[in-house]
Simulated assay, not measured.
Amino acid sequence: MAETMQTDVAIIGAGPAGLFAAFECGMLKLSTVLIDALDEAGGQCAALYPEKPIYDIPAHPAIEAGALIASLEQQIAPFAVPRLLGRRIERLDGSRGAFALGTDRGDVIHARAVIVAAGAGAFGPNRPPLPGLEAYERTGSVQYYVRRKEAFRGKRLVIAGGGDSAIDWALELRDIASHVTLVHRRARFRAAPESLAQLEAASGPGGPIELVVPYQLHALHGEDGILGAVEVATLDGDVRRIEADHLLAFFGLSTDLGPVAQWGLQSALHHIQVTPSTCETSMPGVFAIGDVATYPGKLKLILQGFSEGAMAAHAIHPIVHPHTALHFEYSTSKGLPTAASGVAPAAA
Protein backbone atom coordinates (compact mmCIF):
# COMPACT_ATOMS: atom_id res chain seq x y z
CA MET A 1 0.00 0.00 0.00
CA ALA A 2 1.36 3.40 -0.97
CA GLU A 3 2.04 5.84 1.83
CA THR A 4 2.23 9.60 2.18
CA MET A 5 4.69 10.81 4.80
CA GLN A 6 5.89 14.12 6.19
CA THR A 7 9.44 14.30 7.56
CA ASP A 8 12.34 16.67 8.06
CA VAL A 9 14.87 14.63 6.08
CA ALA A 10 14.38 11.95 3.44
CA ILE A 11 17.42 9.64 3.31
CA ILE A 12 17.79 7.74 0.04
CA GLY A 13 19.83 4.64 0.78
CA ALA A 14 19.81 2.49 3.94
CA GLY A 15 23.42 1.32 3.86
CA PRO A 16 25.93 2.16 6.61
CA ALA A 17 26.18 5.85 5.67
CA GLY A 18 22.41 6.26 5.45
CA LEU A 19 21.80 4.50 8.76
CA PHE A 20 24.35 6.62 10.59
CA ALA A 21 22.98 9.79 8.98
CA ALA A 22 19.60 8.86 10.47
CA PHE A 23 21.28 8.63 13.89
CA GLU A 24 23.00 12.00 13.51
CA CYS A 25 19.73 13.61 12.42
CA GLY A 26 17.98 12.03 15.40
CA MET A 27 20.57 13.49 17.76
CA LEU A 28 19.65 16.93 16.38
CA LYS A 29 15.92 16.17 16.76
CA LEU A 30 15.43 15.99 12.99
CA SER A 31 12.91 13.37 11.86
CA THR A 32 13.93 11.05 9.04
CA VAL A 33 12.62 8.41 6.67
CA LEU A 34 14.92 5.79 5.11
CA ILE A 35 14.16 4.70 1.54
CA ASP A 36 16.00 1.87 -0.21
CA ALA A 37 15.51 -0.19 -3.36
CA LEU A 38 16.53 -3.35 -1.49
CA ASP A 39 14.10 -5.26 0.71
CA GLU A 40 16.38 -4.96 3.74
CA ALA A 41 18.54 -2.27 5.27
CA GLY A 42 22.32 -2.53 5.10
CA GLY A 43 23.16 -1.95 1.44
CA GLN A 44 26.02 -4.03 0.07
CA CYS A 45 27.14 -4.99 3.59
CA ALA A 46 23.91 -6.93 4.11
CA ALA A 47 23.20 -8.03 0.56
CA LEU A 48 26.67 -9.04 -0.66
CA TYR A 49 28.99 -9.96 2.20
CA PRO A 50 27.32 -10.06 5.64
CA GLU A 51 29.90 -12.53 6.98
CA LYS A 52 32.94 -10.74 5.59
CA PRO A 53 35.09 -9.02 8.25
CA ILE A 54 35.76 -5.27 8.04
CA TYR A 55 38.96 -4.06 9.69
CA ASP A 56 38.81 -0.25 9.53
CA ILE A 57 35.80 0.60 11.70
CA PRO A 58 37.01 2.58 14.75
CA ALA A 59 37.00 0.61 18.03
CA HIS A 60 36.41 -2.66 16.16
CA PRO A 61 39.64 -4.52 15.29
CA ALA A 62 37.38 -6.68 13.12
CA ILE A 63 33.63 -6.76 12.66
CA GLU A 64 31.54 -8.73 10.19
CA ALA A 65 29.54 -6.55 7.80
CA GLY A 66 26.23 -7.99 8.99
CA ALA A 67 27.15 -7.32 12.62
CA LEU A 68 28.04 -3.72 11.74
CA ILE A 69 24.60 -3.22 10.22
CA ALA A 70 22.94 -4.80 13.26
CA SER A 71 24.82 -2.37 15.53
CA LEU A 72 23.83 0.62 13.40
CA GLU A 73 20.21 -0.54 13.54
CA GLN A 74 20.46 -0.80 17.33
CA GLN A 75 21.96 2.68 17.48
CA ILE A 76 19.02 4.32 15.66
CA ALA A 77 16.36 2.24 17.44
CA PRO A 78 15.58 5.01 20.01
CA PHE A 79 14.50 7.28 17.16
CA ALA A 80 11.98 4.80 15.69
CA VAL A 81 13.03 5.72 12.15
CA PRO A 82 10.41 4.58 9.61
CA ARG A 83 11.58 3.06 6.38
CA LEU A 84 10.26 2.39 2.92
CA LEU A 85 12.15 -0.66 1.67
CA GLY A 86 11.87 -2.28 -1.72
CA ARG A 87 11.14 1.17 -3.13
CA ARG A 88 12.95 3.12 -5.78
CA ILE A 89 12.80 6.92 -5.83
CA GLU A 90 11.43 7.94 -9.22
CA ARG A 91 11.02 11.69 -8.89
CA LEU A 92 12.07 14.72 -6.89
CA ASP A 93 10.05 17.94 -7.02
CA GLY A 94 10.15 21.18 -5.09
CA SER A 95 13.05 23.10 -3.62
CA ARG A 96 15.04 23.64 -0.42
CA GLY A 97 12.72 23.40 2.55
CA ALA A 98 9.82 21.86 0.60
CA PHE A 99 10.63 18.74 -1.43
CA ALA A 100 8.27 16.01 -2.59
CA LEU A 101 9.70 12.63 -3.51
CA GLY A 102 7.80 9.86 -5.27
CA THR A 103 8.58 6.14 -5.34
CA ASP A 104 7.87 3.46 -7.91
CA ARG A 105 5.12 2.15 -5.60
CA GLY A 106 3.29 5.45 -5.47
CA ASP A 107 4.57 6.61 -2.07
CA VAL A 108 4.96 10.35 -1.56
CA ILE A 109 7.44 11.75 0.95
CA HIS A 110 7.34 15.44 1.84
CA ALA A 111 10.69 16.53 3.24
CA ARG A 112 12.52 19.74 3.97
CA ALA A 113 15.88 18.28 2.93
CA VAL A 114 17.19 15.20 1.17
CA ILE A 115 20.29 13.10 1.82
CA VAL A 116 21.40 10.83 -1.03
CA ALA A 117 23.31 7.92 0.50
CA ALA A 118 22.81 5.59 -2.43
CA GLY A 119 26.30 4.08 -2.54
CA ALA A 120 26.93 3.05 -6.12
CA GLY A 121 23.20 2.99 -6.78
CA ALA A 122 21.13 -0.07 -7.57
CA PHE A 123 23.51 -2.94 -8.20
CA GLY A 124 23.70 -6.40 -9.64
CA PRO A 125 26.45 -8.82 -10.65
CA ASN A 126 28.20 -8.91 -13.99
CA ARG A 127 27.21 -12.40 -15.12
CA PRO A 128 29.43 -14.63 -17.29
CA PRO A 129 27.95 -15.38 -20.76
CA LEU A 130 27.58 -19.14 -20.29
CA PRO A 131 24.89 -21.34 -21.88
CA GLY A 132 22.30 -22.59 -19.38
CA LEU A 133 23.54 -20.25 -16.66
CA GLU A 134 20.06 -19.44 -15.32
CA ALA A 135 19.31 -23.04 -14.31
CA TYR A 136 22.46 -23.18 -12.18
CA GLU A 137 21.68 -19.80 -10.64
CA ARG A 138 18.24 -21.00 -9.55
CA THR A 139 19.69 -23.94 -7.61
CA GLY A 140 22.50 -21.91 -6.06
CA SER A 141 25.18 -23.86 -7.91
CA VAL A 142 26.32 -20.54 -9.38
CA GLN A 143 26.50 -17.58 -7.01
CA TYR A 144 27.88 -14.06 -7.08
CA TYR A 145 27.87 -13.22 -3.36
CA VAL A 146 28.79 -15.10 -0.21
CA ARG A 147 26.10 -14.70 2.40
CA ARG A 148 26.80 -17.83 4.47
CA LYS A 149 30.28 -19.31 4.50
CA GLU A 150 28.99 -22.52 6.08
CA ALA A 151 26.96 -23.24 2.94
CA PHE A 152 30.25 -24.17 1.26
CA ARG A 153 31.64 -26.47 3.95
CA GLY A 154 33.12 -29.57 2.38
CA LYS A 155 32.24 -28.39 -1.14
CA ARG A 156 34.42 -28.20 -4.22
CA LEU A 157 34.58 -24.54 -5.23
CA VAL A 158 35.61 -22.84 -8.42
CA ILE A 159 36.13 -19.11 -7.89
CA ALA A 160 36.44 -16.97 -11.01
CA GLY A 161 37.93 -13.49 -11.05
CA GLY A 162 41.17 -11.62 -10.51
CA GLY A 163 40.30 -8.81 -8.13
CA ASP A 164 40.02 -8.33 -4.39
CA SER A 165 36.68 -10.12 -4.02
CA ALA A 166 37.85 -13.29 -5.77
CA ILE A 167 41.11 -13.46 -3.85
CA ASP A 168 39.62 -12.49 -0.49
CA TRP A 169 36.95 -15.19 -0.73
CA ALA A 170 39.42 -17.81 -1.96
CA LEU A 171 41.47 -17.13 1.17
CA GLU A 172 38.42 -16.95 3.43
CA LEU A 173 36.94 -20.24 2.19
CA ARG A 174 40.13 -22.28 1.86
CA ASP A 175 39.66 -23.92 5.27
CA ILE A 176 35.91 -24.44 4.81
CA ALA A 177 35.66 -25.91 1.32
CA SER A 178 37.14 -29.30 0.49
CA HIS A 179 38.97 -27.73 -2.45
CA VAL A 180 39.26 -24.22 -3.92
CA THR A 181 40.22 -23.57 -7.52
CA LEU A 182 40.87 -19.96 -8.51
CA VAL A 183 40.44 -19.25 -12.23
CA HIS A 184 41.66 -16.07 -13.90
CA ARG A 185 42.28 -15.09 -17.49
CA ARG A 186 45.83 -13.99 -16.79
CA ALA A 187 48.53 -14.85 -14.29
CA ARG A 188 48.53 -11.38 -12.74
CA PHE A 189 45.92 -10.57 -10.09
CA ARG A 190 44.63 -7.16 -8.95
CA ALA A 191 44.50 -7.11 -5.16
CA ALA A 192 46.14 -5.73 -2.05
CA PRO A 193 49.83 -6.75 -1.68
CA GLU A 194 49.14 -8.57 1.61
CA SER A 195 46.35 -10.61 -0.01
CA LEU A 196 48.61 -11.48 -2.93
CA ALA A 197 51.30 -12.67 -0.52
CA GLN A 198 48.77 -14.88 1.28
CA LEU A 199 47.53 -16.24 -2.04
CA GLU A 200 51.05 -17.11 -3.11
CA ALA A 201 51.62 -19.01 0.12
CA ALA A 202 48.26 -20.80 -0.06
CA SER A 203 48.63 -21.83 -3.70
CA GLY A 204 52.06 -23.44 -3.41
CA PRO A 205 52.62 -27.20 -3.70
CA GLY A 206 50.08 -29.01 -1.56
CA GLY A 207 48.34 -25.74 -0.66
CA PRO A 208 44.57 -25.40 -0.21
CA ILE A 209 44.12 -23.16 -3.27
CA GLU A 210 44.79 -24.27 -6.84
CA LEU A 211 45.49 -21.56 -9.39
CA VAL A 212 44.23 -22.17 -12.93
CA VAL A 213 45.68 -19.43 -15.15
CA PRO A 214 45.44 -18.13 -17.81
CA TYR A 215 41.96 -19.61 -18.32
CA GLN A 216 38.45 -18.25 -18.76
CA LEU A 217 35.05 -19.79 -18.01
CA HIS A 218 33.86 -21.74 -21.02
CA ALA A 219 30.92 -23.99 -20.03
CA LEU A 220 29.02 -25.54 -17.13
CA HIS A 221 28.22 -29.24 -16.84
CA GLY A 222 25.59 -30.87 -14.66
CA GLU A 223 21.99 -32.07 -14.55
CA ASP A 224 18.80 -30.22 -13.57
CA GLY A 225 20.78 -27.16 -12.52
CA ILE A 226 23.05 -29.13 -10.16
CA LEU A 227 26.65 -28.36 -11.05
CA GLY A 228 29.10 -31.20 -11.60
CA ALA A 229 31.99 -29.51 -13.37
CA VAL A 230 33.21 -26.19 -14.73
CA GLU A 231 34.91 -26.12 -18.11
CA VAL A 232 37.59 -23.49 -18.67
CA ALA A 233 39.62 -22.64 -21.75
CA THR A 234 42.61 -20.57 -22.82
CA LEU A 235 42.61 -18.15 -25.73
CA ASP A 236 44.61 -20.78 -27.63
CA GLY A 237 41.79 -23.29 -27.27
CA ASP A 238 43.17 -25.50 -24.51
CA VAL A 239 40.20 -26.82 -22.53
CA ARG A 240 40.22 -28.10 -18.97
CA ARG A 241 37.41 -29.63 -16.90
CA ILE A 242 37.28 -28.92 -13.15
CA GLU A 243 35.00 -30.98 -10.91
CA ALA A 244 32.96 -28.58 -8.80
CA ASP A 245 29.86 -28.23 -6.63
CA HIS A 246 29.68 -24.44 -6.85
CA LEU A 247 30.95 -21.64 -9.07
CA LEU A 248 31.50 -18.26 -7.42
CA ALA A 249 31.90 -15.62 -10.12
CA PHE A 250 33.36 -12.27 -9.07
CA PHE A 251 33.41 -10.03 -12.13
CA GLY A 252 32.30 -6.87 -10.39
CA LEU A 253 28.95 -5.15 -10.15
CA SER A 254 26.91 -3.26 -12.69
CA THR A 255 25.56 -0.18 -10.95
CA ASP A 256 22.92 2.39 -11.81
CA LEU A 257 21.95 5.58 -9.98
CA GLY A 258 18.63 5.42 -11.82
CA PRO A 259 16.44 8.55 -11.78
CA VAL A 260 18.80 10.27 -9.30
CA ALA A 261 21.19 10.72 -12.23
CA GLN A 262 18.49 12.74 -14.01
CA TRP A 263 17.96 15.31 -11.25
CA GLY A 264 20.50 17.71 -12.71
CA LEU A 265 22.97 17.39 -9.84
CA GLN A 266 26.52 18.32 -10.76
CA SER A 267 28.44 15.08 -11.17
CA ALA A 268 31.77 13.61 -12.18
CA LEU A 269 32.33 10.03 -13.35
CA HIS A 270 28.92 8.88 -12.08
CA HIS A 271 29.49 10.43 -8.64
CA ILE A 272 27.69 13.45 -7.20
CA GLN A 273 29.90 16.46 -6.50
CA VAL A 274 29.38 18.07 -3.09
CA THR A 275 30.76 20.91 -0.99
CA PRO A 276 33.23 19.16 1.36
CA SER A 277 32.27 21.13 4.50
CA THR A 278 28.52 20.43 4.25
CA CYS A 279 28.10 17.64 1.66
CA GLU A 280 25.49 19.80 -0.09
CA THR A 281 25.11 19.17 -3.82
CA SER A 282 24.61 21.74 -6.56
CA MET A 283 20.88 21.63 -5.73
CA PRO A 284 20.26 23.55 -2.47
CA GLY A 285 18.75 21.34 0.19
CA VAL A 286 19.95 18.10 -1.39
CA PHE A 287 23.01 16.48 0.19
CA ALA A 288 25.07 13.42 -0.81
CA ILE A 289 27.20 11.23 1.44
CA GLY A 290 29.09 7.93 1.24
CA ASP A 291 30.36 6.31 -1.92
CA VAL A 292 28.03 8.29 -4.19
CA ALA A 293 29.59 11.63 -3.12
CA THR A 294 32.83 13.05 -4.44
CA TYR A 295 35.09 16.03 -3.66
CA PRO A 296 38.85 16.68 -3.64
CA GLY A 297 40.56 14.32 -1.21
CA LYS A 298 37.55 11.99 -0.90
CA LEU A 299 38.31 8.55 0.55
CA LYS A 300 35.92 5.69 -0.18
CA LEU A 301 35.78 4.41 3.38
CA ILE A 302 32.74 3.61 5.50
CA LEU A 303 34.12 5.81 8.26
CA GLN A 304 34.26 8.77 5.88
CA GLY A 305 30.60 8.18 5.05
CA PHE A 306 29.87 8.32 8.77
CA SER A 307 31.62 11.69 9.06
CA GLU A 308 29.77 13.02 6.02
CA GLY A 309 26.45 11.99 7.58
CA ALA A 310 27.24 14.09 10.64
CA MET A 311 28.25 17.11 8.53
CA ALA A 312 25.09 16.86 6.41
CA ALA A 313 22.86 16.62 9.49
CA HIS A 314 24.39 19.76 11.00
CA ALA A 315 24.05 21.61 7.69
CA ILE A 316 20.39 20.59 7.45
CA HIS A 317 19.47 21.80 10.96
CA PRO A 318 19.12 25.50 9.96
CA ILE A 319 16.92 24.48 7.01
CA VAL A 320 14.47 22.73 9.33
CA HIS A 321 14.87 25.14 12.27
CA PRO A 322 15.88 28.48 10.71
CA HIS A 323 15.15 30.48 13.86
CA THR A 324 16.76 28.13 16.36
CA ALA A 325 20.47 28.27 17.04
CA LEU A 326 22.17 24.89 17.19
CA HIS A 327 24.35 24.60 20.27
CA PHE A 328 26.62 21.66 19.61
CA GLU A 329 27.16 19.32 22.54
CA TYR A 330 29.10 16.09 22.85
CA SER A 331 26.92 13.02 23.16
CA THR A 332 28.69 12.16 26.44
CA SER A 333 27.10 15.21 28.06
CA LYS A 334 23.96 15.50 25.94
CA GLY A 335 22.89 11.87 25.83
CA LEU A 336 20.06 10.77 23.56
CA PRO A 337 17.16 13.18 23.00
CA THR A 338 14.40 12.48 25.50
CA ALA A 339 11.78 12.02 22.79
CA ALA A 340 12.36 10.32 19.47
CA SER A 341 11.58 12.55 16.54
CA GLY A 342 9.03 11.05 14.21
CA VAL A 343 7.15 11.49 10.99
CA ALA A 344 3.51 12.08 10.33
CA PRO A 345 2.16 9.33 8.07
CA ALA A 346 -1.16 9.57 6.30
CA ALA A 347 -3.07 7.16 4.17
CA ALA A 348 -2.46 7.74 0.49
Rank of each mutant, 00 (worst) to 15 (best):
M1G: 15
M5G: 06
A10K: 14
A14K: 08
A17Y: 02
F20Y: 10
F23D: 12
C25K: 00
G26A: 08
G26I: 13
I35Q: 01
I35Y: 11
D36M: 11
A37K: 06
L38K: 08
E40D: 11
A41M: 13
A41S: 12
A41N: 02
C45K: 06
C45G: 02
A47P: 03
L48F: 02
K52M: 05
Y55Q: 02
P58A: 10
A59R: 09
H60A: 00
A62Y: 00
A62H: 00
A62D: 00
G66T: 00
I69H: 03
S71Q: 10
Q75C: 02
A77H: 01
L85E: 01
L85G: 08
I89Y: 06
R96L: 11
R96N: 04
G97A: 15
A98V: 11
A98H: 14
F99V: 07
A100R: 15
L101C: 10
G106S: 08
G106T: 08
A111L: 07
V116E: 09
V116A: 15
A117I: 15
A117H: 06
A122K: 11
A122H: 07
F123T: 15
N126P: 00
L130P: 12
P131Y: 04
L133R: 02
E134N: 13
Y136G: 06
E137R: 05
Y144F: 15
V146H: 09
R147L: 07
E150L: 15
F152R: 07
R153F: 06
R153P: 07
K155Y: 13
V158K: 09
G161C: 08
D164Y: 09
W169C: 03
A170Y: 03
E172R: 04
R174E: 12
I176Q: 05
A177T: 02
A177F: 03
S178I: 01
T181F: 06
L182K: 00
V183S: 04
H184M: 08
R186Q: 11
R186T: 07
R190N: 14
R190P: 05
R190S: 09
A191W: 07
E194R: 11
A202K: 13
G204A: 15
P205F: 07
I209F: 14
L217R: 10
H221L: 13
G222R: 12
L235N: 05
I242P: 10
A244P: 10
D245E: 14
L248H: 01
F250E: 04
F251P: 01
S254V: 12
S254Y: 04
D256R: 13
P259D: 11
P259Q: 09
A261P: 05
Q262L: 14
G264D: 13
G264T: 07
L265D: 01
L265F: 10
L269C: 01
H271V: 00
T275D: 15
T275A: 13
T275W: 01
S277H: 08
T278M: 10
M283T: 14
P284A: 11
A288S: 14
D291K: 01
D291T: 12
T294Y: 01
T294A: 09
T294P: 05
Y295L: 08
P296M: 04
P296A: 15
K298Q: 05
K300T: 07
I302G: 06
I302K: 06
G305C: 09
F306N: 03
H314K: 15
P318K: 11
P322N: 03
T324C: 08
H327W: 10
E329M: 12
S331D: 05
S331K: 05
K334H: 14
K334R: 13
T338G: 10
A344I: 09
A344N: 04
A346L: 07
